[in-house]
């Protein structure tokens, strides 16, 4: 039976998907700005963060209104709770992209320290993780969501490897310290993006199965 307020849930879902798409675009663009030393693109990433912030507040408002007035239960209740939490994660993804973009602007004015291989690879994985987590939101494919959780270790490993590599740059040549630190922080931001993708994936498992898989090693190891 269709209810007169069903459209509110549809709007809520579409806002979350829109926020997801914008966040993925921000990750892609911030990395493109870094790799192509495109300060203008980096600035556009920084400016676009306002839209993600606005969507987060809108989703919160819709969720609170729905809980207040529609008394959701079961799947609907989980949807509203998960939607709020996922939107907070996506907002943090947006913030990490802003950080990356700001560092990309500074790095664009300097000679390149090294060829960018691992950082784009990290970004690629983080984007795939975000996309798979959001796919689970659309299609309820929890296997995909669980795979996202397992992939987090891959990104962590690249981050650690980059940390070691960039540390050796700084030790060998202290003149590289500023650029190496910028890259370290960018790597850390991407590692955090992957963490947020994991959180979203865990939330999607809760949405689909009402099962809380957070902080459980067995799901991280697969």
């Amino acid at each position: 039976m269709k209810r007169f307020f069903d459209t509110e849930l549809e709007t809520f879902r579409s806002h979350l998907m829109l926020m997801g798409e914008l966040s993925i675009r921000q990750v892609r663009d911030s990395l493109k700005a870094l790799v192509e030393a495109d300060a203008a693109l980096a600035q556009r990433v920084i400016d676009a963060d306002d839209e993600i912030d606005r969507l987060e507040m809108e989703i919160d408002d819709e969720a609170i209104r729905y809980m207040n007035l529609r008394s959701p239960v079961a799947t609907e209740l989980r949807l509203v709770i998960v939607g709020m939490k996922a939107s907070h994660d996506l907002e943090r993804v947006g913030d990490e992209c802003t950080t990356i973009a700001k560092r990309a602007i500074r790095l664009a004015a300097e000679p390149r320290l090294k060829a960018y291989v691992d950082i784009p690879r990290m970004a690629e994985i983080a984007i795939e993780m975000l996309r798979d987590a959001l796919d689970c939101f659309l299609h309820g494919d929890t296997d995909k969501a669980l795979a996202v959780v397992r992939r987090d270790a891959e990104v962590d490993a690249i981050n650690k490897q980059l940390y070691r590599e960039l540390s050796s740059y700084m030790i060998e040549n202290p003149a590289t310290t500023t650029r190496a630190l910028e890259l370290m922080f960018i790597s850390k931001s991407l590692e955090r993006v992957a963490d947020h993708a994991c959180n979203i994936a865990e939330e999607m498992v809760f949405l689909a199965k009402a099962q809380d898989i957070r902080h459980r090693e067995e799901f991280k190891k697969g």
């Binding site: 239960v73 079961a74 989980r78 009402a210």
Partner: peptide, 10 residues
């Protein structure tokens, strides 16, 4: 009220 097994219940 959180995760009913039967779609009719939900």
């Amino acid at each position: 009220f959180m995760n009913p097994a039967n779609p009719q219940t939900e």
